[in-house]
Nucleic acid binder design. Structure first.
Lengths: 250, 250
DNA sequence: GTCGTAAGACTTACGTCGTAAGTCTCCATC
DNA sequence: GATGGAGACTTACGACGTAAGTCTTACGAC
């Protein structure tokens, strides 16, 4: 019992804020955001709920923390991209920004619950701010005025971080891409059926559904490819910003 | 006691689903979404919490209901706009759509909590679908293919309904416009101070803040005019879609 | 070795939430 | 006037976050 704690057997001080946050992320990844409660997290770590309060101030602080972990992951992924050379042509800002945003998106796709938490934060994570700063840097490289850059960040909104809120995503995970086939199909079918039933009330909707769905085989499944749609919207915004930048220069 | 119920004194059957939902909206408007609980809503109506379950299946259903109320309000407001004449030029689709979206937005600004609920819904309200259908109609008038229309709806995302999620809105209500001056200013100042402190880590951010803030007097207050920013982003998207529509025609 | 100390765990308890299950009470109908 | 059912009330349960207090353990100073 009085053995030196330097050996295995899980010393008491093994629990740190970092490990708590890591566990929280893992738990949310595995069981969803709803499953992330103080009690379940404690169970995960083999301790009591109240012990968590030695490492996080409260649940809000815990959520701030997990956002920070994800943000750090984003920053790391973005850091691995090759940076824009100082002597790259100004026009290089756009593809560079596109790449960086899609990289951030790839991280968020690994943590579908994170967008929800992100949206609910009122304070910002240092990592996120740094990420934003790098976006600003790219736009400045492109010669955009700070005024335009500011508007740009608002226009992009959550797209700057790699997600866009899809309204009425029928049941699937917030920003999940590939997974969730069968269940998704069922929900899509139900929705399609409902809309078809009131064809005279929403004629365009029904007609659009008809056209979209037999475009590719497999009927309704794959109505929408999230990744494609995301890039479509992103490109419109980037192109629009580029155009405004050109106009500014003149 | 055995008096005829046909006179005043609040007959028992006065409570209906509609009245429950109306009260819920009023409560959320007044005290925020967090204050909308089954118990508080019941108190508002002068009944017990469990009695609500005669009019709504559960809390989810209640939230579906309040969304529907707001959606109806949107539809009504949009319905008051003068409709696009059949013989209007195709190019009229864009300003018409803009007008319609900004009208929807004006309704949502009256119910700042609604965006949050809207995002959390998994099923759709009939009123919302009808609203969407009218947007589709406008785009079809403009000659856009259903394929492009489909992409357009994804690209617009929540903007189609009149809001965009601003990340890290420092403390203020979700999409609140005018109100909340002093508190907001404090939060802004705190954020500015924090960022300035790490100027070397986020150089562009700090520089941008410096430029933006002394553009208009009143220092940081009014950093961002939500309405202006919303329209800026909306116009980029509409212009981009218009351009794609032109390209399609060729 | 012994012991004081404080970090970090555990225990208990409270108030809130949504809601399952059951009861009572009025009113419309026959 | 009896009856059936709608619509209210009552009670209770198991989550949740967390305030407040207690016990345990490892470690530095003696």
């Amino acid at each position: 019992m009085t053995s030196p704690r330097t050996a295995g057997t899980a010393p008491r001080t093994a629990l740190t804020r970092a490990r708590v946050l890591e566990s929280a992320v893992a738990l949310a990844d595995r069981d969803g955001l709803g499953a992330l409660t103080m009690r379940s997290l404690a169970r995960e770590l083999g301790i009591e709920a109240m012990s968590l309060y030695h490492h996080v101030a409260n649940k809000e602080d815990l959520l701030d923390g997990v956002v920070d972990v994800v943000a750090a992951e984003i920053q790391e992924a973005v850091g691995e991209l090759e940076p824009l050379a100082d002597d790259a042509p100004p026009s290089a800002w756009k593809p560079a920004m596109r790449r960086q945003i899609l990289t951030a998106r790839s991280v968020l796709l690994r943590h579908p619950w994170a967008t929800t938490v992100l949206e609910s934060r009122t304070s910002f994570s240092l990592h996120i701010v740094r990420y934003y700063d790098s976006l600003l840097g790219l736009m400045r490289h492109g010669g955009l005025s700070y005024d335009l850059v500011h508007h740009a960040m608002h226009a992009l909104g959550s797209r700057a971080l790699g997600f866009s809120q899809e309204l009425f995503e029928p049941d699937g995970a917030a920003a999940g891409s590939a997974a969730g086939g069968a269940a998704q199909e069922g929900a899509d079918d139900a929705a399609t059926a409902m809309l078809t039933q009131m064809a005279d009330e929403v004629p365009h909707m029904v007609e659009m559904l008809a056209e979209i769905s037999h475009e590719e085989p497999g009927s309704t499944l794959g109505w929408c490819d999230d990744q494609t749609e995301f890039e479509f919207g992103l490109d419109i915004l980037l192109d629009g910003l580029d155009r405004l930048a050109e106009r500014e220069k003149r």
